[in-house]
Amino acid sequence: MSKLLITGATGFLGGAVLARALSDASIESILLLVRADSANEGVARIKNNLANFGCSEVLLSKINENNILLGDLAYSENFLNDERLSSVTHVINSAAVASFGDNALIWKVNVEGTLKFVKRMADVSGLVRFVHVGTAMSCVPEAGTLVTESMARKPEEEHLVQYTWSKSTIEQLMMEHCPQLPLVIARPSIVVGHSEEGCRPSSSIFWVFRMALMLGKFMCSMEDKIDVIPVDYCAEALLLLARRSELTEKVYHISAGDAGSTQFVEIDRAMASALNQNPIYATYQQVDYSELVRNRRNFKEIYGPCNERLMLRAMRLYGEFSMLNVRFSNKKLLDLGMSPPPRFVDYISRCVETTRDFSIPELMKVDFK
C-alpha cells in the first residue's frame, strides 16, 4: 500500500485498523477522516482512541495534523473537495453509525453520505483498492446454517435492525452507481473485544453475555454456537484485503467460521472461570421473550439502576440474534493466507477483567447510542 485513507479511526474497528497500520512499513502516508472542529482536536481524538489499543508513544507520535481530514459522512459534501483525496491509493471505509437503536443518523451516514463519498473516490484515477466494511448479518442468514458470501438481498422487513438493512443497501448502491470502483466488501461477523486489550477499546456486545449469564436464563440454547472474532484480528484481515494486489472475489467474510465458532456453554465456563464463580449451565433456562418480560421487576436487583424498557428491548433484540446459531464461512479469507482467529474463550478473561468495574447499563450504552 502507498497512501491509505481510513474512515472511522476514532471508533472501535477503525481505531484497530489504524493501530495496526501505523506499524506497516508498506504504507507511505495515512489520511484519517475525523469529526472535529480543528486538525489539532482531530489529532487529540485519534490519539485518545489509539491509547485504548495499547499503542506506544512512538506510534502515537506518528499522528499529526497532516494526517487529519476534517469531515463527517453525515455531511460528506463538506470534505469531498479536499485535494488530498485525489492522491489516495487505498481506502478502508469503516465509518458507520453502528447503533442497534433507532438513531436517525443511520441512514444519513451509512447510505446517503457513504454513497457520496464512494462516488468521489471512484473518480480517483490512482485508486487501487476500496475496502468497504459491511456486516455478515446484512444477508439475514437462515438459522442453524453455515453461511457463505452472497450478494443476494432480503427485504427490509426481514432485518432485525435498521443498521443491517442500511449495510445491505449501501453494498447494492455502490455496485450499481460505481462499477469502476476497485471495490472489495468485507463482512465481519460479531466483533467482540480485543485479543490483548479485552474490552478496553469498546464494550460493544460483550455485555450481552454478562447480562444473560447474570439473569440465568435467555432465549438461546447453551448448545448453540456464535461466530465471534476480536477486533484486532478483524483489522489485520482488512489490511490484508487492502494490500493484496489481486483478489478473485468481491465479498469476504471475516469470521470465526464453523471450526472457530463458540458454544454458549463454553462461554459460560470461561466467564465463570475468569470471575471465580461456578458455571450456570446446570441451572440455566432457555426461555421465550415473554418469560424475560415477567422477570423485569428483578432487573434492578440483578443489574443495578437501569431502564427496564431498554433492558427488555436489548434482551429481545440480542435474544433473536443468539437463537440464529449461524456460522459464517471464512474459507475465502483463509485461502488468502490469513490465519484462523483466536477463539472467543481464549481471550474472554481479558474482556471480563476490563469490564469488571462497570454495570450492564453502563456497558450497553455503546450499542444504543
Score class of each variant (00 low, 15 high):
2 S>M: 07
3 K>R: 15
7 T>S: 15
11 G>K: 09
18 L>A: 08
22 L>A: 09
23 S>H: 11
24 D>A: 08
25 A>F: 03
42 G>D: 05
45 R>V: 01
55 C>N: 12
65 E>I: 06
69 L>W: 07
71 G>R: 08
78 N>S: 12
79 F>P: 01
90 H>S: 08
91 V>A: 07
95 A>G: 09
95 A>K: 06
110 N>K: 07
116 K>F: 02
119 K>H: 02
144 G>F: 06
159 H>P: 03
159 H>C: 03
162 Q>N: 14
163 Y>H: 06
166 S>Q: 05
170 I>R: 08
177 H>Q: 14
180 Q>K: 13
199 C>P: 01
203 S>P: 15
207 W>M: 04
215 L>K: 10
218 F>A: 15
221 S>A: 07
226 I>F: 00
229 I>R: 03
230 P>K: 01
234 C>V: 14
237 A>P: 01
256 A>T: 03
257 G>S: 08
257 G>H: 06
269 R>V: 03
288 D>S: 14
290 S>D: 11
302 I>T: 13
304 G>E: 07
310 L>R: 15
311 M>F: 04
343 R>P: 00
346 D>S: 08
348 I>Q: 02
348 I>F: 00
351 C>G: 02
353 E>L: 07
360 I>V: 15
365 K>P: 03
369 K>G: 13
369 K>M: 11
